[in-house]
Simulated assay, not measured.
Amino acid sequence: MILKGFKEKSNKKYLNKMLSEREVYVDDSKVESLGIILNSDEVDDFELFRGLATYLHIRPNKLKVIAFSPTKNEKPNFWELCFSAKDIGWNGTIKNTELQAFLDKSFDVLISYYANDELELKLLTGLSNAKFKIGILQTDTRLNDLIIKTHLDEFKVFKKEVFKYLTILNKIKNEQ
């Protein structure tokens, strides 16, 4: 129990250091790949994100979704990748190779779709090599480049706002 507290403290310290050194760089490259991090206890409909990818003109093979399960109840075959706190070690080290591959991939956009203040989810958002990060309102505003203030159950509003802001930033491909 004491070691768990020390591990959490080391991960918080690592996250703060990483976020304080983060440089935001936004270019006008078009969105071709999309990564999504979510909490499996908060969201249970994967098709919402496929619909979002289609709406943003992203091919299905360029969409990758990972889910965090704070409880031990993993949902195999439902998410592409489901992970838990045991997949993250001290100082933000990742123990799961599939999870590390997701974080190493340079997505054009990463969506952090979770409301609970879970350290592991914030670590993954911070560790991601995504070029542009979008999230819903969270306690730490340093995690995302664009924050859309919606509730988890207002996905249609979130979807429209993402499209609107990516269009304003000239990141949506015009397909006609």
Rank of each mutant, 00 (worst) to 15 (best):
N39P: 06
N39L: 08
S40E: 08
D41K: 11
E42P: 06
V43A: 07
V43F: 03
D44Y: 10
D44F: 09
D45S: 11
D45P: 03
F46Y: 13
E47F: 08
L48D: 11
L48V: 05
R50V: 05
R50D: 05
G51R: 12
L52Q: 03
A53D: 05
Y55G: 01
Y55L: 07
Y55E: 14
Y55K: 10
L56Q: 03
L56P: 05
L56E: 03
H57I: 01
I58H: 03
R59S: 13
N61S: 10
N61I: 05
L63G: 02
L63V: 03
K64L: 08
V65H: 02
F68E: 02
F68K: 01
S69P: 00
S69M: 00
P70S: 01
P70A: 00
P70F: 00
P70Q: 00
T71H: 05
T71Y: 00
T71W: 00
K72G: 14
K72D: 13
N73I: 09
N73A: 09
E74H: 09
E74Y: 09
K75W: 01
P76K: 12
F78Q: 11
F78L: 13
W79M: 04
W79T: 04
E80S: 03
L81P: 01
L81T: 00
C82Y: 00
C82S: 04
F83S: 02
S84L: 00
S84N: 12
A85P: 01
A85N: 10
A85T: 09
D87S: 11
I88E: 06
I88K: 03
G89K: 07
W90A: 12
N91A: 12
G92T: 12
G92I: 12
T93D: 14
I94G: 08
K95L: 15
K95M: 10
N96H: 14
N96V: 13
N96G: 13
N96S: 15
N96K: 13
L99E: 04
L99T: 09
A101T: 14
A101W: 06
A101P: 05
A101G: 11
F102N: 04
F102C: 06
L103V: 13
L103N: 09
L103M: 15
D104I: 10
K105M: 10
S106A: 12
F107Y: 13
F107V: 01
F107M: 06
D108L: 06
V109A: 06
V109D: 06
V109Q: 03
L110P: 10
I111E: 02
I111G: 03
I111Y: 03
I111V: 15
S112E: 14
Y113V: 06
Y113I: 11
Y113A: 07
Y113D: 08
Y114R: 02
A115V: 11
N116A: 13
N116Q: 12
N116L: 09
D117H: 14
D117Q: 15
D117E: 14
E118F: 11
E118M: 02
L119W: 09
E120S: 07
L121A: 08
L121E: 07
K122H: 15
K122R: 15
L123P: 04
